[in-house]
Each structure stands twice: as C-alpha cells, then as structure tokens.
C-alpha cells in the first residue's frame, strides 16, 4: 500500500467523511473503494472519521439526555433497556449509560408488578383490606343488606316454605366478627352488637 502524498490529511479525512456519510455519488463511492484497496492511509482515515462521528453522536445523545429535555428513544433502545416512557422513532435518542439502564429496568419492573397487582390480585387483596380497614361489622352489614335486597326481589317467586338458611352469613365471616367484637367487649357485656355505619 502506498500513501497518496499529494492529498493532505484534511482532504483525505473530508473525502472519508463524505464516504461514510453517504454524500458521494455511486461513481465516487466506487472510486474511493478502489482507493481503499490500495491505500492504507485512506483506510485509516475512514476508521478515524468513523470513530469521530460515533463519538460526536454519543456526546450529542448524552447532552440531549442530560439537558433536561424530554429524551426520545428509538425502538432498539427500548428493546434493550425495557421501555422508556416516550417513543418517537427517528427522533432524538439517548445513549444509555449503565445508570440509566438500571433505573429504567427498575421502573419497568415496578410498572409490571403494579399492573399484575391491579389486574390479577386486586379483587382478593382489596376485599381483604376493606374487611380489615372497615371492620367485620361493615362486612356483615353489607352482606345482610345484600341478601335482604336479593330476597326481597325474589320474595314473590319463593314458595311459602322456602328455607331461610341462606340469610345466615357464612361461618368464616362470623368468626371474624366474633374475634373483633370480643376484643372490644367491656367487662359485663353479654353479647356483641353489630354496629350500623
């Protein structure tokens, strides 16, 4: 390989820059690639310019990220880091740092956990927590009220000798009431009352 001494490094870098950025015509590309095959200096210029361009892109991505603007990620970065909030393909992307990746991963994991919690476990957990928060008396009152309404609606259809056992709350509910109410009993009280709220 021989160096083209007539071309300064700046000119060579500029030509390499136009090559890697796709600014050359098809004929110019062919000519430059023929030169690459015989000119080590031209190869080095391509490598040098490419390093430079990637570094500039990294700096600008980093600046965009840290300037407080709203960073926009491309699709690939979303796949890689687990999903930042905004997606606008073809716009500004943010170079992910190790810290950013960790934070976004934690955020994504939290979002997934919250979604699972709401979608799957809400009915069970919510019911349990309501019972705990409002007390078993409210639950019993609601149960009794609901049953009364349902029975009132069905009253005309029921045979006269219909069994009234289904008005009774289930044992597990009574057990909860008994425990709580007994804890509130004052000395001398004989039986707990179900409070109406």
């Amino acid at each position: 390989m021989t160096s083209h001494k007539t071309t300064s490094q700046n000119d060579l870098d500029w030509q390499a820059f136009c090559y890697v950025t796709g600014e050359l015509s098809a004929a110019e590309v062919t000519a430059f690639e023929e030169r690459l095959a015989t000119d080590e200096g031209a190869c080095e210029a391509v490598a040098r310019v490419m390093e430079f361009n990637l570094t500039v892109a990294a700096v600008m991505a980093d600046a965009t990220c840290c300037a407080g603007g709203s960073p926009v990620f491309d699709t690939e970065s979303i796949v890689a880091v687990g999903g930042p909030p905004t997606l606008r393909k073809g716009e500004i992307a943010v170079l992910p740092s190790r810290w950013n990746s960790a934070v976004l991963t934690v955020i994504a994991a939290s979002a997934i956990a919250a979604t699972i919690f709401v979608a799957v476990g809400s009915s069970v957990l919510t019911g349990h927590k309501v019972a705990k928060r409002d007390g078993s008396d409210r639950l019993v009152a609601a149960w009794t009220h609901g049953e009364a309404v349902r029975n009132q609606a069905d009253e005309d259809n029921d045979p006269p000798d219909a069994d009234d056992d289904d008005l009774d709350p289930p044992d597990w509910m009574l057990a909860a009431v008994t425990d709580e109410e007994q804890a509130e009993l004052l000395p001398g009280d004989d039986a707990p009352e179900v409070r109406e709220n």
């Binding site: 796709g22 690639e33 095959a37 990294a58 991505a61 491309d74």
Partner: peptide, 27 residues
Amino acid sequence: LNEALVLKRRAKIQEKSFRELAQNDAR
C-alpha cells in the same frame, strides 16, 4: 475491505445512523 464488499454486494444493506451505531457500541 474484501469481506465488507462481499457482504455489501450480497444484499442491500440497511444502513444505520451514527446515533444508532454509537448506541449499539455503548451497549
């Protein structure tokens, strides 16, 4: 260069932006 040109002729290359390439390198 020969290896690259073989790949280049084999199929149309989907060129990536410097930004994407920088991201991938950082990754």
